[in-house]
Design a protein around this nucleic acid. Sequence first.
DNA 1: AGCGTAACGGTTGAA
DNA 2: ACTTCAACCGTTACG
Length: 177
Amino acid sequence: MTTDSITFNHILGQGRVNQLGGVFINGRPLPIHVRHAIIAMAKKGVKPCHISRQLKVSHGAVSKILNRYAETGSISPGQIGGSPRARLTVQAVEKEIIIAHEENPHLSAAELRDVLVQKDVCTKGNAPTVPAIKRLIGARGSPPSSNSSHHPTPQIKKMERKRLSYSIDSILGISIG
DNA sequence: AGCGTAACGGTTGAA
DNA sequence: ACTTCAACCGTTACG
């Protein structure tokens, strides 16, 4: 354990030690395996304080990660640098869309998109486009599609799409494609 | 003792 | 190529 804890953290020279004796890198997210361990232990019913001591992670971080997981279901940290325009975790949005769809299967893609905005999961600016949502909910096993009237797809949508080409829309598109 | 939250110092990545 | 800026990070400290 002792030699394992130091390895590359020390080699890289960025490793710092917190009050609990755990190694962390200031300004950087915790390693993924630590996060996974936190979630796994929480699922087993381990109390947060115990998790904190066991993994040598500050209780503040444990609280934060646990809370994030409870709300979004996402283990990964949020997007750090990048564009000032809202860019949030794809997983969170994807999950929210699925949840919203399961809870309200009758809602249209546009309605689901609005729900996302209302839930503050994303904003009007970064919300995925209707086609993207349709693809997402359609790929999961809901086979409505076919017949009915196809949407006219206004030009403004095209503009938005261009603006969001770097955003979750494109990511969502390739993620589930 | 345990948990939530603000403050603090730090890094990242696009503009 | 360099600087700015806004988002997030985890630790620490306080309530």
